[in-house]
Every structure is written in C-alpha cells, then in structure tokens.
Write a protein that binds this DNA or RNA. Structure first.
Lengths: 109, 109
DNA sequence: AACGTACGTAACTGGACAGTTAATTAAGGA
DNA sequence: TCCTTAATTAACTGTCCAGTTACGTACGTT
C-alpha cells in the first residue's frame, strides 16, 4: 500500500491520469504543470519507487508509462470495505420502500 | 480525494480496519497501538476531517464509527483505471485462447 | 571534438506532520 | 464539593517532503 502515499499528492495523481491515456516523455509531462522540471522529476521518481510508472530510455528521452499493478492492489485493499456502502445503499432502499416513516427514532443525536 | 492522504498512514489504515468491524471508543482504539493516546486522538481527528469516521459522544466516552463515503469516493476515482488491468488480463486470456499467434496486429499501442 | 538538448541528482529551504509530555475540559461517583 | 476517569488540546521537537536553483551526465548533431 505504498501507492497510497504516492497518490496522496494531487500532482502525482494528475501524472497518473495523463499516463492512463498513453505514455509520455518526461519533458512532455513537465510542460503540463506549473512547477519546475526537477520537481516533476522527483514526482516521477516517487511514482517509480511506488511501482506506478515504468521508464523506458529511448535515446536521450525518458518515456514514462503507467503500471496499473499498484492500482489493482489498491482495488483489492478496498474490496472488503465495499460491502459497507453497498449495505448502506441497501438500507436506504429499505428506508425508501417503507415510505420513510418513523425517522426520528433511529436518527440519533 | 482528501481521503488518500488520510489513508496513507498505516496507523490510520489500521484504525479504519478496526472500525470496519464495528464502532469503538477512543481509548479502546488507543489500546491497540504502541503509541500514546494523544497520538491516536490526532489520527482520529485527521480521519474525522477526511470524513472517514464519525464520533458520537456517549457520557465521557467518544465512540467512533466508520463512515464509508470517502472509501466509496475512492472506489469511484479508481473506476476509470480498472480497464487497465482488466484489459491486461483480457489480453492474457485472448493470448492463451489463440495459442499465442499473430500477436503484433492488435497490439495497437 | 565541441555544443545543445533532455533529464536526473545535489544541496538547500519552508512547511506540514507524527510523536512526545503537560495542561484542559467534561462526566460520574464518593 | 472533591477526586478519578476519559479524552482532547496545547506546546514543542524531530523528521519528512515538495519546491527551488545549480550542477552533472548522457545522447545526438554539426
């Protein structure tokens, strides 16, 4: 779950989003952001260390590509919690089906 | 996506995991960790501000409960990426089914 | 060989954050 | 009322991290 820390930064999430559309060179990525190129380089390093991106050296260019594996891992981490909001929606359905009577009783506070 | 930053900390993830099994008092939670109670109090505050937990004051106890809404939001954020590893698996399936012939044609990049 | 381009790394700065101990608020019980 | 218990808040410290500028390295071109 090292990916969570990497994805906690909005710039890095945006990089991931860009790479989801296809691979890009480092400079090409850096051009999309208001921060300096070294800053993007560091972000890419964090993403690389988290396994979220992979680099391919192509002449003097570095081409970055998204590796979805950690996202899949995150998805798997999330899985056991899924029943929680599914259940809540079920409860809501029940509520609606009942015509939403006697609400104050279970509302609490 | 503020939840990502909150979930980046392993202690907080564990708190979330504990609360998934049912609500608990603050001290009850603190007892599960090797850090001080104020530290847990701060973690709970971060989780509260991220909307991941809710407190209910019950006498002099604070009972914390998980609110799955931000997890659901995270799930939604993850959704568009899902095709990436699904596709990879599909490609693998296809690959196997076809006996691995004529590969370059459909790769498309 | 010399130069320009494309990145990365080094060194530093400011701000955020997790942890600690000590003080504060609030609820029960003697 | 006084004391204990439960928990948060305050104040402080150390560490990590994102950003900057400056420098280093490697590839390609002339």
């Amino acid at each position: 779950m090292e990916a969570l820390a990497a994805l906690a930064d909005p710039t890095r999430r945006q990089i991931v989003s860009l790479l989801a559309a296809g691979e890009r060179g480092a400079g090409e990525l850096a051009g999309q952001f208001p921060v300096s190129r070294p800053a993007i380089s560091r972000h890419l390093r964090v993403l690389r260390e988290a396994g979220l991106v992979q680099v391919r050296v192509e002449g003097q260019r570095r081409v970055y590509a998204l590796d979805p594996a950690p996202l899949s891992e995150l998805d798997a981490w999330l899985a056991p919690y899924r029943r929680l909001w599914a259940q809540r929606l079920d409860a809501l359905d029940t509520e609606i089906a009942r015509g939403r009577r006697a609400r104050t009783q279970e509302d609490g506070r």
